[in-house]
């Protein structure tokens, strides 16, 4: 009887409970709990014990020093600015390069389109680290690329501005360049998806009503691809702003990005509360706006 009751329960609703519960519990345990630890840690006090934190003691139970320093200390403030500006510039360049590429992909023949799309995705399947590394090879001062750029530069500018090599490595320029390189597919793919859905007869209708091709682009194509631009922009901006690998390998150590600051505070300085405070501020600055936007976007989609 018990077995029968159990199988009846399973048929009716147990199967769906299991389906929901397994991934739910997993994410609660391995994602939400660790995240709550970060939030808790951000108001703890640094100690020299192991693990290096405590609540209370000589300090208030909820110690907001980390937050105060995260927003007032020039080092952290500059890191935030560097990160947001670098990620912003990288996003704009991804858009400027990625938009025409995505638009071109919608205009080539079907058979070519699949091959070219595969070529866009291919770098994504190769190691991220190695794509960064590839640029380290190109930017180094004696590489063929740097030598070539230097020659072009020296030929174009007055003699006084001539240089021996281009100081590309270990600069914010290098960080932005490599960000554009590694994140470009993330911009192209959502843009392509939103551009490909557009009805080509709308372009014809606008041409028919007297618009020239560039006006058609501004009036019809661009406004309709805004969801793709926003999606691509978020896919580039958010990971770029928190990037750790790229600034560590090609960035300027004197003006670190915020990802590197968090990592250094955590590992080298062993200041868990400080690292956690910066992390929470970073999340509030970037992730929360993104989630709010996503929520409204989903609502807008639903109302259509």
């Amino acid at each position: 009887m018990g077995g029968k009751r159990l199988s009846g329960w399973f048929d009716r609703r147990g199967w769906s409970d299991v389906l929901i519960a397994a991934p739910y519990i997993w994410l609660l345990l391995f994602f939400l709990l660790p995240f709550l630890i970060v939030v808790g840690m951000s108001v703890a006090t640094k100690t020299s014990t192991a693990p290096p934190f405590s609540f209370g003691g000589d300090y208030p139970l909820i110690n907001l020093q980390g937050y105060v320093r995260a927003v007032s200390d020039t080092l952290y403030f500059r890191s935030f600015i560097t990160s947001l500006v670098s990620a912003g510039i990288a996003t704009v360049f991804c858009l400027l390069i990625g938009y025409p590429m995505a638009l071109a992909l919608t205009r080539v023949s079907k058979s070519w389109r699949n091959i070219l799309l595969m070529l866009v995705i291919l770098p994504f399947w190769t190691s991220f680290l190695l794509r960064v590394y590839a640029w380290m090879g190109l930017m180094g001062k004696s590489s063929w690329f740097n030598v070539g750029i230097t020659k072009i530069w020296n030929a174009l500018v007055p003699a006084g501005w001539a240089v021996d090599f281009m100081p590309m490595m270990h600069s914010n320029f290098a960080v932005v360049l490599v960000m554009v390189y590694t994140y470009l597919p993330f911009m192209i793919l959502p843009l392509y998806a939103s551009l490909e859905r557009l009805d080509p007869t709308l372009d014809e209708a606008a041409l028919d009503l007297g618009s020239r091709p560039w006006q058609v682009f501004l009036d019809v194509t661009l406004p309709q691809s805004i969801p793709g631009i926003v999606a691509g922009g978020m896919l580039v901006f958010i990971p770029a702003a928190g990037e750790l690998v790229i600034p560590t390998l090609v960035g300027d150590a004197a003006s670190p990005m915020i990802g590197r600051v968090i990592s250094d505070q955590f590992s080298s300085a062993r200041d868990w509360p400080m690292a956690s405070s910066i992390a929470v501020v970073l999340l509030v600055l970037m992730v929360v706006p993104a989630m709010i936007y996503g929520h409204f976007q989903a609502k807008a989609e639903g109302s259509k």
Binding site: D199, T201, E204, L207, G210
Partner: peptide, 20 residues
């Protein structure tokens, strides 16, 4: 004569109204 310079307008089968 390109489409935008023709005094000819079209009502499309799908209507092609600009959704935005």
């Amino acid at each position: 004569v390109p489409p935008w310079s023709r005094p000819v307008h079209m009502m499309f089968q799908s209507y092609a109204l600009f959704p935005h």
